[in-house]
């Protein structure tokens, strides 16, 4: 079968287009995909490197500050033990106050990678001065406890108030070092 020059040119163009499509589909796109993956990996590695650099640069300061707070920090045990110890400490604080303790309720713990936080909701009733003493006691405690929320409602005309306190305690967790560079 003979082709004219025009037909041959068209056929050549079609063949070239097919070749270009095939090369694009089977060679170029896979390579571009691979390139994107490598770029993503490179970016991740670079971020990791920066993080490692930053952590290494801050290492001395972190160790120093951590040592300063070491005495106040609690080591992790089981949740039940932690909560039990926390409630025991709390009852010691409340024992000397002229406050009537209403409801005490343990809220779900917040567990993070490096620490966990137990929160207890306590309802107390008493005079405002007693409440202030309790607040002062908590703020000066050697334990890592703080009052996260507070709601104070007047309870009658004799100056007594009913306070609901959300008191939390911080517990540090032992962390495996790998992957902790971020």
């Amino acid at each position: 079968m003979r082709f004219s020059d025009r037909e041959r040119r068209l056929a050549r163009l079609v063949l070239l287009a097919l070749l270009a499509l095939a090369v694009t589909r089977f060679v170029w796109f896979p390579l571009l995909g691979e390139r994107r993956q490598i770029q993503a990996r490179l970016a991740e590695v670079e971020l990791q490197r920066l993080s490692v650099q930053r952590n290494l640069a801050a290492r001395e300061a972190v160790e120093r500050n951590f040592a300063a707070l070491q005495d106040q920090l609690q080591e992790a045990r089981s949740n039940e033990e932690d909560l039990s110890l926390f409630l025991r400490s709390l009852s010691r604080m409340l024992s000397g106050m002229a406050l009537r303790i209403g409801q005490v309720r343990a809220l779900p713990s917040e567990v993070q990678r490096a620490y966990k936080k137990h929160t207890v909701q306590v309802e107390v009733t008493g005079h405002l001065a007693s409440l202030a003493r309790l607040l002062a006691e908590v703020s000066l405690s050697e334990l890592p406890v703080r009052i996260e929320r507070m709601e104070v409602v007047g309870a009658g005309n004799d100056g007594r108030v009913k306070a609901t306190l959300w008191i939390s305690e911080l517990i540090l967790l032992e962390m495996p070092p790998e992957g902790g560079a971020a």
Binding site: V62, N65, A114, P177, G180, A181
Partner: peptide, 21 residues
């Protein structure tokens, strides 16, 4: 990596403790 991981963990704990205290 390991040393930096330890430092990062302590930093995280330190920040949580600071927030707490």
């Amino acid at each position: 990596i390991n040393v930096a991981g330890e430092v990062a963990a302590k930093r995280e704990q330190l920040m949580a403790a600071r927030r707490q205290l």
